[in-house]
Design a protein around this nucleic acid. Structure first.
Length: 421
RNA sequence: GUGGCUGUAGCUCAAUGGCAGAGCACUUGACUGUGGAUCAAGGGGUUGUGGGUUCGACCCCCAUCAGCCACCCCA
């Protein structure tokens, strides 16, 4: 035990209970994606580093990506996100694909960050995008997909909020108070910070960024105006569409939502835990992603959700499924040395009838085998000792109600099917 | 990258300078053909690692490693 090689920092072990939950989550988002007609795809886990360098900038790649060198000397990266791969895949077959394209994916990603609550170096992410259409109805659909997912895992609008904004609206609003060009980036950063910092510190931060008192109060006025969305025709349409889609619970306009990514150009949205504030998922509309890697311009809308944060939130609200171990139905015991072959034979018969069956793999005390059956959570236990063997019978113990019956081998399957009903 | 907290049995944690412990788990038995409950016995430790202070260190000091948490960042 002492000399165990430690696991890689920020990597994750999935013990069966955790793997079961992971699989459950996968099923949920798969069903939601499919219900809107999205198709599953995946990219490679390894990409040339240039793919990310082109878009994300060298700093990010150097500091946040797991980089390795192949034998030819090329630099590769474990994918830190999926969008560049998606865009490359679309660009490669740009003229063969059918638009609007609806694709989704769930797989592992790596980022070299300092692990903490809700953040690991190895994580899974659900990515879902609609590409090739430039409408507010498409934006609304992706938001509706979010809502459908949140509902399907049992979350309510008391627990999670889905905040929606539009970058074009923020752009024009900033323009009207005299913030433009380079200052806009700083303003976005300031807006992003507005609910993290206390009022006074925020104002200090704002003047450090070079904003005038007038501009600062202008920004505050924008942020506090809950009806601001009415000035944005596209947001009005998004909210109307959401109502038509019957997906307007969870959803709320919020001018604070900007999103860190530069490539968002229109609608942006983000879901977060109301009690705790951490973001669960986020996404938005982009105009020209494909163009960036050398294809013709194609608009799209999409979002991404990490598995770690959502699992923490679901656990907090008691919404994770019971880890009712496995579905293995029964255990075949081994009475003694002479019974080994019969145990194998009987378990094969039961298994062939479609009943999940585990056979104890060695000779052991019955007490130990029964205890094992209890621990792994099977429903029934089969015993064939000398007495049963002599009459061609098997004893079946139902662990749920501690009853036991001895039945003829020929009637065993029917008996078990009845028991498992 | 910055800061805080924590490292003691498989797990959760006691022991505040004087013999390293408990609960749970495990093994065995009470029960020679039967799980969950109960009882009894047993196994299990270089107190993360290295140094220092002290008659004496799990405890105090220094270093180091690891984990957790927050900040930064978040494609």
């Amino acid at each position: 035990m002492k000399n165990l090689i430690p696991p890689v920092k920020g990597a994750r072990d999935f013990y069966p209970e955790e793997k079961a939950i992971h699989g459950w989550l996968y099923q949920k988002l798969k069903n939601v994606s499919a219900s809107f007609g999205y198709q599953e795809y995946d990219g490679p886990f390894l990409e040339r580093i240039d793919l990310y360098a082109a878009k994300s900038g060298e700093e990010l790649v150097k500091e946040q990506a797991f980089v390795l060198q192949d034998r030819g000397g090329d630099l590769l990266a474990l994918r830190p996100e999926l969008t560049p791969s998606l865009v490359r895949m679309v660009a490669q077959r740009q003229n063969q694909l059918v638009y609007p394209l609806r694709w989704w994916s769930f797989g592992p990603f790596w980022r070299y960050e300092r692990p903490q609550k809700g953040r690991t170096r190895e994580f899974f992410q659900w990515n879902i995008d609609m590409i090739g259409v430039d409408s507010t109805e498409a934006d609304a659909e992706l938001i509706a997909v979010c809502v459908a997912f949140l509902r399907s895992v049992g979350l309510s609008s008391d627990q999670v909020v889905l905040r929606v904004n539009d970058r074009r609206l923020m752009d024009s609003e900033l323009n009207t108070i005299g913030i433009s060009g380079e200052q806009k980036k700083a303003a976005f950063k300031l807006i992003d910070r507005s609910d993290k910092l206390p009022q006074k510190e925020w104002e200090t931060f704002a003047s450090e960024l070079g904003f005038t008192t007038q501009q600062i109060s202008g920004i505050q006025a924008i942020l506090n105006d809950t009806t601001l969305w009415k000035k944005s025709p596209s947001l009005v349409r998004v909210f109307d569409s959401l109502k038509a889609l019957r997906a307007d619970d969870f959803v709320r306009f919020d001018a604070h939502i900007i999103r860190g990514l530069d490539y968002y150009t229109g609608t942006v949205f983000e879901a977060s835990d109301l009690d705790g504030g951490r973001a669960i998922l986020g996404g938005g509309h982009y105009d020209n992603l494909v163009e960036d890697v050398g294809g013709d311009p194609l608009p799209g809308v999409g979002f991404a959700m990490g598995d770690v944060m959502i699992t923490i939130v679901l656990e907090k609200y008691g919404l994770l499924p019971e880890p009712k171990s496995f579905t293995r139905a029964g255990l075949m015991t081994v009475f003694d040395e002479n019974a080994l072959q019969d145990a194998l034979r009987l378990s094969a018969i039961v298994r062939d009838a479609g009943i999940e069956m585990v056979c104890y793999p060695a000779v052991a005390k019955l007490q130990k085998q029964f205890k094992y059956a209890d621990r792994i959570g099977v429903r029934f236990v089969l015993v064939q000792g000398p007495d049963e063997k002599a009459e061609g019978k098997v004893s079946v113990k139902d662990l749920a109600n501690a009853t036991q019956q001895t039945v003829a081998e020929a009637e065993l399957i029917g008996f078990l099917q009845q028991l498992l009903k």
